[in-house]
Structures are given as C-alpha cells and as structure tokens.
C-alpha cells in the first residue's frame, strides 16, 4: 500500500506540493496527470525518500518514509524516466547487480525468467544494454522491479518516447503486476495510456491534487475534457498574468 498524509514540499517560498492526501491500495494503479512542474515527480521523489518532506509523511506498507527510509526501500521498486542502465553490461548483468543491491540473489535462470516476464526478447538478454532501444531498457527496468518482488511500484513517465507497440506491452505488464497485488503510482502525460491502464487518475496543478477520479466511471473523451479544462484554466490564468 502507498499512502500520503498531508504531504507537503516547499522550496523556499514556493510550495511545490500542497498537502497531498492519497491512498493507493494493493492492486490499484494510480496515475498522476499534469503539466510540467505540476508536482508529479516531486510526489514520487517524496515517496522514494529522494527529497525530504517539509511537512506530512509518506508511507509504504504502513512504514514511514521519513522515519525509516531504508526499510521502506525494501518494499518498493522504481523505474525512472530516463533509464540508461550500465551501457557496457548485459541485461542479465544489470539485473543481477540491482537485485544484489536489494539483497536478493538469483541464479541466471531466475533472472532470465524475470526478463521473459517483462517481455524482453530472449536474443537481447546477453547483448550489452548500449545497443538497446528505450523500450527494451524500460523492459529491463520492469525486470529489475519484478526481481525485487516489491509491493509498491513507482514509475515516472514510463511511456515517454516509446512507440505504440512498446507502450501497449508495457500496459499489459503493469496490469499483470497490479493483478498480483502490487500498488502502482505512475506519473504521465499520456492521457490515453492513463485511461487504458490506470484504476484511478489524479490531476495535478501547481502542487495541488485538483481532481481524483476512478477510470471506471469515466471515458477517454471525458477524461481529456476534464484534464484540458484544468490545463486551460491554468493557461488563461497565465495569459491574465502576462
């Protein structure tokens, strides 16, 4: 489970995240939508313990991120936006390393199984990652997350730069993970993918969670309208300032 209680982050006088309250249960995929600078990545970084909250707290499986940062990291996995990995190592070697850091040792067969589950082609397992496309690297990232057997997964713009086929494959993997009981928080610009894969959507603007919707209750075009409405209001406000 992933939970935020009045989570807030200030940078000097600027409030980057304003009192976020959020609960993502096991099996749920919560997607954060918003423009650049809305606070999506800040939210994820606060859960990961990369930045310190100004007030409030974040919880992973009911363990406080502020009080037990190392303990929470045992229960979460993360796939950053630009994942290049160690370019001169193969997928297997990268996986072995990151699993090892997480305290999990696997033999080669087990690692290959994780990569297969992430739908990476078998021929690519022993090639150096520098020859991979972005989609292939994302799959290795998924493999690393799978190997960690984390109950919480954080993704930052995972489908940015991916072709439709890879995005589709990615969505399938996420759904499978969610069916296994993993709580997933994903930040994205991709409205279509969010509707496709998410169970809940949160629209962020200026550090605020301005809308919290269930994707079952809404269709693609409605979602788009609501999102754009919030963005347009933002734009008009910007125009007024100018």
């Amino acid at each position: 489970m992933i939970k935020a209680v009045n989570l807030q982050k200030d940078y000097g006088t600027k409030r980057a995240l304003k009192g976020l309250n959020l609960t993502i249960n096991a099996g749920e995929i919560f997607c954060l939508l918003g423009a650049n600078g809305a606070g999506k990545t800040t939210t994820i970084n606060l859960f990961l313990g990369f930045i310190k909250a100004s007030s409030g707290d974040a919880f992973i499986n009911n363990i406080s991120v502020i009080e037990n940062p190392l303990e929470t990291k045992k229960h979460l996995a993360y796939i950053p936006e630009n994942l290049t990995l160690y370019p001169n190592l193969t997928a297997i070697e990268n996986m072995e390393y990151f699993s090892g850091l997480a305290g999990k040792t696997y033999d080669r067969k087990a690692l290959e199984l994780f990569l297969t589950q992430s739908t990476l082609e078998k021929e690519a397992f022993t090639k150096q990652v520098k020859h991979y496309s972005k989609g292939m690297r994302q799959k290795v990232g998924i493999g690393i997350a799978l190997a960690k057997k984390a109950r919480a997964l954080f993704l930052d713009e995972p489908t940015s730069g991916l072709d439709p086929k890879s995005s589709n494959e990615f969505s399938t993997i996420l759904k499978n993970l969610s069916n296994d009981g993993t709580a997933i928080l994903m930040a994205s610009h991709d409205i279509f993918r969010v509707k496709e894969v998410g169970t809940h959507v949160g629209i962020m603007r200026d550090g605020n969670l301005v809308e919290h919707l269930s994707t079952e209750e809404i269709n693609h075009s409605d979602l788009e309208s609501i999102y754009l409405n919030h963005m347009t209001f933002e734009n008009s406000a910007a125009r007024t300032l100018v």
Binding site: L48, F50, L70, E71, K73, K74, L76, A77, Y78, P80, N82, L83, T84, L85, Y86, P87, F98, L101, A102, G103, G141, I144, F154
Partner: peptide, 11 residues
C-alpha cells in the same frame, strides 16, 4: 546514465 536513482531506490 540514470542508474543512480535506481541505486538510491534500494535499501
């Protein structure tokens, strides 16, 4: 190369 955030997400 993006691995630092992966490393730091480990315990």
């Amino acid at each position: 190369n993006g691995t630092l955030s992966l490393v730091l997400s480990q315990p």
